[in-house]
Nucleic acid binder design. Structure first.
Lengths: 143, 143
DNA sequence: CTCCATAAGTCTGTAATAAAGACTTAATAC
DNA sequence: GTATTAAGTCTTTATTACAGACTTATGGAG
């Protein structure tokens, strides 16, 4: 029983929203990036019901974001695929946005250290030539 | 009647997912970035019901992503706030991800021209020193 | 090999949210 | 003022979510 058929939208955001646009997918992926990969561990860390977690993990696997191993038995692990790992820039942008706009004044995000000992810089949209692109360059959104 | 009370999660992704983690919010924002700002225009461009669109627009306004003007009468417009515009990097990252992973082989995104005549570059996560950060720098995700 | 503990998943009844579309209200054009 | 239409509400039906008990299968201990 397949719980996900991919969207046929011509728009990448339309397609992506069918995968990520629900109450749990972003949170499941956050946990996956933190290293969580077992069913019961997701269950412990998120206030989600078992049935919905089953459905979401299956959907994310069908969508190619997670891989279930072994594919056909119990006691499986769910880990990020290459496509899943590639959501890292989007999730980081979302995280930065949340830190900027969803906390009371005075909130400072927990310090983030990379293996270089440097903080993560604010994510920017740049042209190939390195010039900043802003939202009201509306042309960007032609579909 | 308020249709949204902000999340108290200590995690910015937890908070953000309460705003963006549903079937319509990302699509409404996509349209908003395209310049759509009237109720009936959103309705024409998305297969959403009137009642749900009413609720979502109110939620997005309560969340500070859109602003409704005038605030208390009909015939209003909904436009992106500064916080809403600041979702541009996240939406762009999502768009790039969708273009990379959600289309059959051979798909090339529609050419995107900025006012500089240059394409948009792939969004990267960098340290303040300009070094690339990758997903399994797991430390990044400590909450 | 058998049995046990437990991870993963299903099932059931109830509650919340969404869909479709008719109906209502109010703002603007004339 | 009246007509038009944009914005929103209401009602019914359908979908999805929830809590929690129950089932199934797997890996380990002996």
């Amino acid at each position: 029983m397949r719980s996900f058929t991919s969207s046929r939208s011509p728009c990448p955001i339309g397609r992506a929203s069918r995968i990520l646009g629900d109450r749990w997918s972003l949170l499941i992926l956050r946990e996956a990036f933190l290293g969580v990969n077992r069913f019961e561990d997701f269950l412990d860390r998120l206030p989600i019901s078992r049935a919905v977690l089953t459905a979401r993990l299956r959907m994310l696997a069908d969508a190619g974001v997670l891989v279930r191993d072994p594919p056909r038995s119990k006691r499986a692990t769910y880990t990020l695929t290459e496509a899943g790992c590639d959501l890292f820039p989007m999730l980081t942008a979302l995280r930065q946005w949340g830190d900027r706009w969803l906390f009371e004044n005075g909130h400072t995000p927990l310090p983030i250290h990379t293996r270089f000992g440097e903080d993560v810089a604010p994510i920017m949209v740049l042209t190939t030539g390195g010039k900043p692109v802003v939202a009201n360059d509306r042309i960007l959104w032609d579909d």
